[in-house]
Design a protein around this nucleic acid. Structure first.
Lengths: 249, 249
DNA sequence: ACACTTATGGTCACAGCAACCATAACTGTA
DNA sequence: TACAGTTATGGTTGCTGTGACCATAAGTGT
């Protein structure tokens, strides 16, 4: 092992309480396929947890920002060009016991995109595949490290952000119909929405979507107007889920 | 320098692209004093940036969780017992150039509490003091590292969370009047709110606050009922700012 | 008794919403 | 061509929550 290439405080040098750590990014990549919310997993090709499913991710290189690292891993492990999709940091996990190799800090990123391609095998990962996001919560999936926790929290973050931000458009292509956008909400929230009311709310929210002027001809039915993302990120008013069951708080 | 005490992947060992990093937590500590939102700063006692104001924080120790590290720094540098206040991770900053000593990753925590005490000088910090949060945005303050960026983002996070969560109660004591709670919103949003309407919204939001049955006698005026925090965290419906000026999105 | 202050409660007009119905514009088939 | 089927779009109605504003309650000190 080579010595550390960093200078540290005098106090730090004398202390045995602080040690170096390894910095990684892990990606919670969600997309919509066949009207289902899917999450990208890889099968680990190395110990620890060899053979187990895990989040795509890897070490952040020297002189690389977290975001750049996330984009690189997105390309390497999932074959996805990240410049087209929504990438957002959402949490950092560093519990001492989370990785048997030592103190490994992972910064988790949310990556959302429209109908992403079937992933090619990456460089490190033995295999990459889409799994229904619902599997994360029914306990039918056992993941490496604390990735089960991370992905569950990522999923909840997506659901919540759908209400208050325009993040739903990240699941649509460059242009999309209101039907496409509504399907995003319906699939992720797991409940049908009234087309007419949805339309009114979206169009009355300034900056949510912009009409392109073009139309899309469905296989059957009336043509639908096409839209693209607006400039707004925070939705005001928010597009709230009906407070049907459960607690409201 | 002692060798690393961690095992790493074969791939990692061979690579010069990945190096160790140092893990710190930095704290954005906000409180209300004299009807002003204040942020806690320390004056650095060490290079780099010796003598400059900075966020309280420090290295995370081995076998310590991020949260425990944040709580320890809260006690060491600010003399604050963190068990009573709201502590929440909100972002991680790791740009290669952010610290001249090398790759230092900092996980930023939001710490919110009611009228916190004037800080005693900490162990590392030369001096700790409260500064008006408004100073963060008027450019009158120059902070060490990227702390200016971090604190500005923290402030925006607080403002936003006020709308959608019950975080405002974190700025109040164990029990509080609706006037106290309203003052939190008024100070942080910088706009007056109608007492009557505020009352109705808060009481109609299930789980936001619970009446204690006790009263508080102000120096003048009618006694006010006392409340404590409710069980709800997400507010439904949210307590939205009036969409007066500016963009709504 | 009175003014002063603050908490609490109510009214009213209006905006946004859910539920529902109606129409438009395309497809394919008899 | 006529028609059913399908989907997008548009409108109506009753209800709920909101902002602006007014009224009352319950303390203080003079």
């Amino acid at each position: 092992m080579r010595p550390l290439g960093v200078r540290v405080d005098d106090w730090l040098k004398d202390s045995e309480e602080v040690g170096p750590s390894w910095l990684t990014v892990d990606l919670a990549i969600f997309t919509l396929r066949d009207d289902q919310l899917m999450v990208l997993l890889i099968e680990r090709g190395l110990d620890p947890f060899n053979g187990m499913p895990a989040m795509p991710g890897g070490y952040v290189q020297k002189d690389e920002t977290l975001r750049d690292g996330a984009l690189r891993e997105l390309a390497e492990e999932a074959g996805i060009d990240g410049s087209q999709l929504h990438l957002e940091q959402f949490g950092t996990y560093a519990d001492p016991g989370r990785d048997p190799r030592g103190r490994v800090v992972t910064v988790a990123y949310l990556a959302l995109g429209p109908n992403l391609p079937t992933p090619v095998g990456g460089t490190d990962a033995a295999r990459a595949f889409w799994a229904p996001a619902a599997r994360l919560e029914d306990g039918a999936l056992r993941l490496a490290f604390d990735h089960q926790t991370i992905l569950t929290e990522a999923l909840e973050e997506v659901r919540r952000k759908l209400e208050y931000t325009a993040v739903a458009t990240a699941f649509c292509g460059e242009t999309f119909t209101l039907r496409d956008l509504r399907t995003v909400y319906e699939v992720i929230w797991g409940q049908p929405l009234d087309p007419s009311n949805f339309r009114r709310k979206v169009l009355n929210t300034p900056g949510f979507v912009q009409p392109t002027g073009d139309q899309w001809l469905p296989p059957t039915g009336r043509p639908a107007a096409l839209y693209r993302r607006g400039h707004a990120w925070l939705l005001n008013p928010p597009l709230l889920r009906a407070a049907t069951s459960g607690q409201r708080g």
